[in-house]
Structure formats: C-alpha cells, structure tokens
Design a binder for these strands. Structure first.
Lengths: 203, 203
DNA sequence: CTACAAACATACACGCATGTATGTATATTG
DNA sequence: CAATATACATACATGCGTGTATGTTTGTAG
C-alpha cells in the first residue's frame, strides 16, 4: 500500500488533526496511540512511521500552533494604531469571539492551556512551553511600551507588570471558558470582561 | 501488624499527604499507587484498605482542601467591613502572600488548579469541581453585592460580571505562578497586580 | 484467655499500552 | 523492467499498573 508523497503528507496531517482532538479530550497522558490511529483512520504503524512517539506528535502540534499565533500578533503590531491599548483590547476581544466559533482552535488551546501540565513524561517540554510563553508575553509588552512612549500611560507605569496582569487575566478567561464552555457565555461576556479590565489603565 | 485506631488514622493521613505531593508533581493520571505508597512508607495494601482506588483519594483530598477554604471566606464575610471591595482586595493579597510561603498549600492548589483536567478517568469529578467552583464564586459575589448596596459601585455594575472578572484574574495569577514559581515573583508582584486590577472599580 | 476482626503486607493474575520486528504492496529510480 | 526504498499494516514481546485474593499480625471484645 505504498502511497505517493502527497498521500503521505496527508496522513501525517490526519494524524496531527486526530491527535489534537484526542489530546484535548482525554489529556496527553491518557490519550493512547491506538485511539489516535483509529481517529485518523490509520494504524499505529503509520504513526510510528511519521513520529517517534506520542511526545513527538505533541511537539509537532506545538510548532504547528504556536507559530501562526506569533506571526498574527507580529502583523497586528505592524499597524501604527493611535491607541495601542485600545488596539490590544480589541485584539483580545476579537480573538475570544473568533475562538468561540472555531472548534479547531478551541481544541488546540484546550490542549496547550489545560490538558498539558508539563509534569512527568511531559516535563522535558516545559522549557519549550515557557520560552514560547515568554515570547508571546514580550509581544504583548510592546503594546504597553508603545502606549507609554505615546504618553498614554502614567510615568510610573511598568509595562512588564501591566503585561503580566493582562496575560494572567486572559489566561484565566481562557482557562475558565475552555474548562466549562457551557457555563461560560463567552460571546456575551468577553467584551464586558475585557472592557472592564482595560478601564484600570484609563486614569 | 494490627495497629490501634489512632495509628490507622495516621496512616490514612500519611497516604493523603503523600498523594498531594505525588499528584501535584506528576499529575493525577501519571501518579501510581505504588509511588504514593512508597512516599507514605506503606504498601499498596494499606492504600486499598483505606480507599477504593486512586480517584477516591482524589475525592478525599478535594473535600479536605475545599471546605477549609469555604469556611475561611465565610468567616471573612462575617466582618462588617466599611469597604467590601478593599476587603476583598486585601483578602486576595494576603492569600497570595501566604501561599508563597506554604509549600503544602502550593501543592494542593497545584493539584486542583493545574494537574487535574477532569477528562478521561477524572471526568466523573468534573461536576464536583464545577459545583465547588460555583460555590466559592457565589461567596466572592457577595463582596460585590455588599459594595453595591453601600453605593460603592455604579448603578449599572453587574456583580456577577465583576465576580467572574476577579475570579478569572485570580485563576490566571495562580495558574501562572504555580506553573513556573521561579519565573513569577509572587511576593513582590502580588500587591501590584491586585491593586492594579481593583483600580477598574474606582470610578 | 480466646476468638474475632481490624489493619495492613504480600502474592498473583490480568489487561493494556508501548515499542519493535516483520510483512507487504506500491511508487520511484536507474 | 527489475531493484529498491517508501509508506504503511500486522504480529509479537515486554513491562507496568491495577485490582484482588490471600496471608499475617495484633488490638480488642466477651
């Protein structure tokens, strides 16, 4: 059953897509390669052909999902918005609203925000996760630095602290929403929550 | 090796204490009963005598840790503070600062905030977790309801939204801190972060 | 003082997930 | 058109964690 090169690439994608689903449903450590194989309509043989083990899949998924996010933020930072804080606020609101309607993204975020605790078997990937977290935090910090340079923030405001605050808030929202999607009316609450938070910069 | 009743209760406690450690280090699903047994200086036989299985330990831990938290908040709510928002703010700051120096509490919170994703084997306990979450959120909401009755909040402020906002923020802080304790200088940042957030109510 | 049962420790059987070894069909290359 | 490597599927061996069955000691009730 030798397949062509495109076929092969397709099965690789199938495996990755199935992995996101299974990982986000059961958690990485509870997910089994056989489940993933069945969800991707292949056998474990195919998985072991494309990946060394379960954690290589995890790593591949991380790359596939982190990079688009970073480049999207970078693109947003290119724009010379007159109100960087407002820009960041709107970015987050639209991100949350898009998330609410994108099952794929929800699964991916569920996987990396909730279902992977980077302990035990996943411990080796903690550094990877931390550094990509720091990478995106640095990007968010640039919004605040812009705002400060434009005099939109008080002199004593520390962009690093503000970034950490926003990051924690967003992480909390994502966490609560992804943990109980029925109990969290994101579509209606997201603007209210974000707007409320960004009020603390308006003084 | 029949032990007295107090001995028995002690081993039960030993098992629970060891479980918090192992669970918070490896995650519930990756923790094995043999590890727990060794950490508690007993055998798996002792564990199976006191508990049905791993998840019964988890349940027992949840009870042991949730109830003191609730009663602590209830006690704080008894006080008739003239500024409920300030009271809530100070409560959170002191909770975070205490946490920073209490290894036991850190382990417990790590377990329930990060290491248990309530999927797969833990799915049955999701309801339990959600209802105890809602219970504590209702308690936090009472601070805002108090404040509103006292005219400390604008007429159109929705205590439920405000509660959700604070809860998400705190969850995010806890999550980030527990995930990378070295990278999060909680002792110095906690007051700054909390104070910043509570500013959005001062208008 | 002697049953009996509590409080474990030890031993065993089972299933399940992993990794690897092997088989196989087919695209591709010379 | 043969030879080879690719892209898997299948089969097998292994280990590990769980649950349970059984053994053992000792506090305790009568």
């Amino acid at each position: 059953m030798r397949r062509t090169k495109e076929d092969s690439e397709q099965t690789r994608e199938d495996i990755l897509n199935a992995s996101v689903r299974i990982f986000s449903e059961k958690g990485v450590s509870q997910a089994t390669l056989d489940e993933i194989a069945k969800a991707a309509n292949v056998t474990r043989g195919a998985i072991y052909w494309h990946f060394e083990n379960k954690f290589q899949i995890f790593e591949a998924l991380h790359d596939r999902l982190h990079q688009p996010f970073v480049s999207m933020i970078l693109q947003d930072l290119e724009k010379d918005h007159p109100e960087p804080l407002q820009q960041l606020r709107d970015l987050w609101i639209s991100l949350l609203l898009e998330l609410d309607e994108d099952e794929q993204k929800k699964q991916a975020l569920t996987l990396f925000v909730i279902k992977s605790d980077y302990s035990g078997e996943l411990a080796k990937y903690k550094d990877m996760h931390c550094s990509s977290k720091n990478e995106s935090m640095k990007l968010f910090q640039r919004y605040f630095e812009k705002a400060k340079k434009m005099g939109k923030l008080p002199e004593n405001a520390d962009p690093e602290v503000l970034t950490q605050a926003v990051y924690c808030f967003m992480k909390g929202i994502l966490f609560e929403y992804l943990n109980d999607q029925e109990g969290f009316d994101l579509k209606n609450r997201a603007p209210a929550l974000i707007n409320l938070f960004f009020k603390c910069f308006d003084q």
